[in-house]
Nucleic acid binder design. Structure first.
Lengths: 334, 334
DNA sequence: TTGTAGGCGTTATCAT
DNA sequence: ATGATAACGCCTACAA
């Protein structure tokens, strides 16, 4: 390992004490302007870089925050991270990334191994149905913010309005004249999944439209699952004439299945997704969807986390960002 | 700030010295099996977590590696990160993410502020044309691995075979009967951009096909730029009958422009991209492309970095992963 | 096998 | 305004 320049080196060269150097580096007021200048010049000359380990050790903080997230290989999550990154970076925080691969076990393992003292705070989009591992670290007093996939634990949460998004999406289908509306979604034990399901159900109830049990399919979140679910729907005795998918990826999977079957999307079957992934405008016909403010979710989550870090007992908050229906070709008859 | 359990606490409770506890935690051999058991049990009981700052400070390392990357919001980079994450995690390393937003200035700022002692090594996909900032940290002796967008500095690099990929892509267009082949690409000062350009040029040269100057357009890497470039090509006096784009996003932008103009892709104009982004199979007609092993790039880069970290003077290596032509509808006449 | 003591680089608390 | 000095939590000789 190399030897890096330390404040000691600077102190020695300048014949001052380390505390003086430290003061200059931290820009405190109890130091003369000339010595400060002198020190900073020497630091620049020697290419001094502060040692975060030492600083963290003596201050009890690290300037690192952790992000725990199911995936990063999709538009939504990678955009959230970008939002987080922006805020973190401009506040002098580093972000440490943990990817759970949507595995409860992995998430629990990561959280438990989290050397708590190495992080000033945590941002998490949990994939778990059980929150014991999170409770543990919460009890340790480490600030934590839930985003997107939140838990039912008490705490600060930032999410989109899943219920209303699903509501307006489903109502839009109804208004476009579709009436046999299916919903393909993810596992039952996720909160956002339940919220979107409820929005869908309430929209139908409000319009007194009945649902067949086989129109609601729980599976995974990927495009492949969307394709499979659609094939299953087409094979059922009561084929639907519209589809509300829990996210754009599944909607797109379903559309690919429909295109294979030469079923006219829009005219024969309406399709709505959720997220507003750029893929919506690439697929043809373009996909109607509910937009999510991924970047803002990241930005706001991080801002709230920093507030928790800086102020003990900052009160927990729940922020819900509205979605917006974006009508495209997949729900228009032609 | 909270007080976390330290080895001192454990030592006191057990009436042993801190070094004994330290030894137990590190699983060294010079400790009796019973005391080790005793210590570990107590650590478990008190929910002890090691303090990485302290450990890092005394050992001169942190188990953190940095990733510096232009973006994360696209398939390629997010997949690379996933590959890196996998290797890092299973070796007990954390990854700290820095996003440059494709800005040279930002990259330089990040690198210069990098509190060097806080990282054991760095993985970088540089967006810069000038490498002074990187030279600086290299001279500090910190291990560094370049991936994807490498520099011409000496060091370990992991990249795809850009030249050959471009060569086979262009040859494929020629073999399909296209002859007026344009190339839309990124800034001139990037190495991988130059390599792909050279592959394209050499393929044409080999087949004695001439190129018009206006068929080569340098702009940005985004879908929007692809669209703009295509519009420019269509407006030129010598409209091409085929297009090789530096990446899939630009190819897709170009395809959208063509679709707007009702130009039949495949029959009237062939299009090839580069990356094999999932979008290739979502757009219609599907996009012929050259595949990149994004996950492997990440995996291998991280493995090499860890070798550099663990073994001083591990010799620099250059790994070049082959690409593969994936023929789809966009280069087939119908 | 175990304990003691010094040090890692920085900050913070005293003096001066 | 500046300087000594003791933390911070852990590791590592060296001693016992």
């Amino acid at each position: 390992m190399h030897h890096f320049v330390t404040i000691k080196d600077i102190a020695r060269e300048l014949n001052v004490s380390v505390s003086t150097v430290s003061r200059a580096m931290r820009d405190t007021h109890d130091i003369s302007i000339e010595t400060k200048k002198k020190v900073l010049a020497k630091a620049e000359e020697l290419n001094y870089k502060p040692n975060f380990n030492a600083r963290g050790l003596s201050q009890g903080r690290t300037n690192n925050i952790g992000i725990i997230i199911p995936f990063i290989t999709n538009y939504y999550f990678s955009t959230v991270i970008t939002g987080i990154q922006n805020v973190a970076y401009s506040n002098g925080y580093n972000i440490i990334l943990y990817v759970t691969d949507d595995s409860e076990e992995r998430e629990s393992q990561i959280v438990r191994n989290l050397t708590i003292s190495g992080l000033d705070g945590i941002l998490i989009s949990t994939c778990a149905g059980n929150y014991d591992h999170i409770k543990e670290i919460k009890e340790n007093g480490i600030p934590i913010v839930f985003f997107d996939r939140t838990s039912d634990l008490h705490g600060t949460k930032v999410m989109q309005d899943d219920y209303n998004g699903a509501l307006i999406a489903t109502k839009h289908l109804i208004e476009q004249g579709y009436s046999k509306i299916a919903h393909i979604t993810g596992p039952k034990d996720q909160m956002f999944t339940r919220n979107r399901l409820n929005g869908y159900l309430d929209a139908l109830k409000e319009h007194q439209i009945s649902v067949k049990k086989e129109w609601i399919i729980h599976s995974g979140f990927s495009q492949e699952w969307g394709e499979k679910d659609m094939i299953e729907l087409l094979a059922s005795n009561h084929a639907p004439d519209a589809l509300f998918a829990v996210n754009d990826r599944k909607a797109i999977g379903a559309m690919l299945a429909l295109k294979k079957e030469k079923i006219n999307i829009g005219t024969e079957i309406g399709v709505v997704g959720f997220t507003n992934d750029p893929m919506c405008t690439i697929i043809s016909p373009s996909l109607t969807t509910v937009s999510e403010s991924a970047f803002d979710i990241g930005r706001i989550s991080c801002e709230l986390l920093l507030k928790h870090i800086k102020k003990v007992n900052f009160p927990p908050q729940e922020v819900i960002l509205p979605g917006e229906l974006i009508v495209r070709e997949s729900t228009v008859r032609n």
